[in-house]
Design a protein around this nucleic acid. Structure first.
Lengths: 218, 218
DNA sequence: CCAAAAATAGCCCGATGGGGCTATTTTTTT
DNA sequence: AAAAAAATAGCCCCATCGGGCTATTTTTGG
């Protein structure tokens, strides 16, 4: 039996993550927090085995929170969450004592596989697994690369459209701008929403902003 | 008589700005551009006395454009525009040769006051005025503070709603969350959109993100 | 050259959004 | 206590969005 604390500023994300965790009978989400401060407060009352910690949060970000939690409760396992698979963030997370790093927008099954291996300690998770998971989604790693392709990888056109959507343009604007039909824009958009597991264009804009913030190419 | 080139990626913003400028009989908007590149192209054909340059634009952003314009046409006065009153941006703007920095969402009258003083050179604008204007809108500067309040000033409720919108929630979600009717949410939203001069919730999200990014309280 | 992937485009239809109005109640300010 | 501002809520109406589905043409990769 493993207890989880989910820390993310988006209540939606927390719900989504909790939903995924509930698929594994031995996983129990015992709390949620919307920023690092709340997470610390929570842990002072009740300890969790594993903390899933988003990086970008108001008040206190995931890095700072990880540092402090690790100082106070060194035996808590912390897995950092991010929408990007940025290598810098990944190493930063490990440096501060996190045991892992999970890229959002992955298949629930992958989350569970990964978290099970972290929880049971079956695998030498010291860095190996986390690293492997990351690598699978950064450099072209054979079969895993296909999964990335299948998953996040937007096509060139999709990226163009994502960018315009994120700037607040309507589908018609975009169609006009790219001189294609509005239907085509809608089609691309549908695919983008599906690929990135978000529900609407505002969330898409947030997604794009998070990437842009890190200087990530999108 | 002073000629203006308005550079902003949002055609709405350009229109709004042009409208404000038209209130002063001696101000003439002789051109608009939607990004830095277009602005440069325009200036090669026809020079303007003053360029109003948005910072965030696709293709070529305001900082880059300012640098290049100042190199090619050192006698053109450039005023940077931004939705935020971030001090970093402000100094960056001055460093690159801009003569001023205007915060969007200010009262038209303030714009005109400021631009008149820039145009006529009556005041030692070398940094003084720009700085003063900025200060009025950062630290609590007596009367000016009230004007800020009056202007972009969303109410408490509106800020709550803005935040939820920016996180990608639908109106219904928000209504549910705040236990008010969806109609009320829509009403608040209408007011917010109007106050912040944006067209839709994605642009609202961008607005919120820009503020959040700079650690500005919103 | 052929197969797979990407880009194009259309249709239908219900959900959501956003503008324009009016109006009542609560809260704040004067 | 009176006035002003904010919060609440409703209405109508059309625009936009987003999901599901099919289908053709380009482009790309092996």
């Amino acid at each position: 039996m493993y207890t989880f604390l989910v820390v993310d500023d988006s209540s939606e994300a927390r719900e989504a993550i909790s939903d995924i965790l509930s698929l594994e009978p031995s996983f129990y989400v015992i709390g949620q927090a919307s920023n690092g401060k709340e997470a610390l407060k929570f842990l002072q009352n009740r300890k969790a085995d594993i903390v899933l910690m988003d990086i970008n949060m108001p008040e206190m970000n995931g890095f700072e929170a990880t540092k402090q939690i690790k100082t106070l409760f060194p035996d808590i396992t912390i897995i950092m969450l991010s929408v990007s698979d940025d290598v810098q963030d990944f190493f930063e997370a490990l440096k501060l004592g996190a045991q892992g790093y999970l890229v959002k927008n992955l298949e629930p099954q992958l989350w569970l596989d990964y978290l099970r291996s972290v929880a049971t300690g079956d695998t030498p998770l010291e860095k190996g697994i986390a690293m492997r998971i990351l690598q699978e989604f950064t450099e072209g790693g054979g079969k895993a690369q296909q999964q990335k392709e299948q998953f996040h990888s937007l096509t060139k056109r999709e990226r163009e459209i994502l960018q315009l959507v994120a700037e607040g343009y309507t589908n018609r604007d975009i169609a006009c701008n790219l001189t294609i039909s509005e239907n085509t824009v809608k089609n691309h958009l549908k695919n983008i929403l599906q690929k990135l597991h978000v529900k609407n264009r505002v969330q898409l804009a947030r997604y794009a902003a998070e990437f842009k913030n890190k200087g990530y190419p999108l």
